[in-house]
Amino acid sequence: MTVETFSGAERILEPSAGALLRRRVFGHAGFMIGAAIILAILAAALLAPWLAPHDPYAQDLTRRLVPPVWDAKGSWLDPLGTDQLGRDYLSRLLFGARISLLIGFSAALISGLIGTGLGLCAGYFGGRVDMVASFVVTTRLAMPVVLVALAVVALAGGSLHIVVAVLGLLLWDRFAVVTRAATHQVRQLDYVAAARATGCSTARIILAEILPNIMNALIVIATIEMANAILLDAALSFLGLGVQPPLPDWGLMVAEGKEYMFFSPWVIAIPGLALFTLVLAINLVGDGLRDLAAPENRN
């Protein structure tokens, strides 16, 4: 609706676009909370060597399963207690953040490259290419992810690289589906037709005209897949077929603490909560980005 003004006093003061965006970003509680948590975890991961009170791998068999500081038997020596091998839990938790973030970022990056490439081709070229791409996506969806990931990791060995590669190679379907739909839509728009008419190359059109326009959607998917990769990695580690001990992976910490959980519940509660918090924060940021990118979808 056009704002027609009758007199100066009635004029509706329109804030600038930048100010509006800032207000929306800072006014979006979920996004702000999520971003703050992620920044905090990122800082903890980067500063782990300085923040950690102990070496995360140093065992002290005389101080096994010491409860956290809030317990009557806890002490400030190990603020979050120790595990079954007497390793300081806080230190392991801090170093574990590195693994989760690394796996999340790298797996999302790999799957993003695969999925976006496939989706761009399918959406841009359509026809046969599209049919082949949708067949590939359907086939990928039919494979039971956890089982295949477990089997491949078991065959190839449980190093960090392998786990990242396997997750990256398995989680690209959503990228492909969303990129395909978005590309298909953008392709119909006038300015892409104009670019084609002026003789721009296909690669140029895809990179310069289409990709920037689907970036919003891609970033949102990236947060979803990052969260997914972190959860899947944790599940693989928990089943003993992901990254291997003594790495302080949060999923592995839950697995190792499982035997002791009935008497020392904190050994599984703490790494689990850490996982939950990180994934929650990533999801909050993803939801927030989606809301902020498409305000008309909110009600």
């Binding site: 056009t2 704002v3 027609e4 009758f6 007199s7 009635e10 509706i12």
Partner: peptide
């Protein structure tokens, strides 16, 4: 011309911005 905003109260005649006969009292 265009239809005026329907926000809040109208002061004067809603059509005066598009009206060839409009005069100051119309506001």
């Amino acid at each position: 011309g265009l239809v005026p905003s329907l926000m809040g109260e109208l002061a004067g005649c809603g059509f005066r911005n598009r009206c060839v006969y409009a005069s100051p009292p119309c506001a």
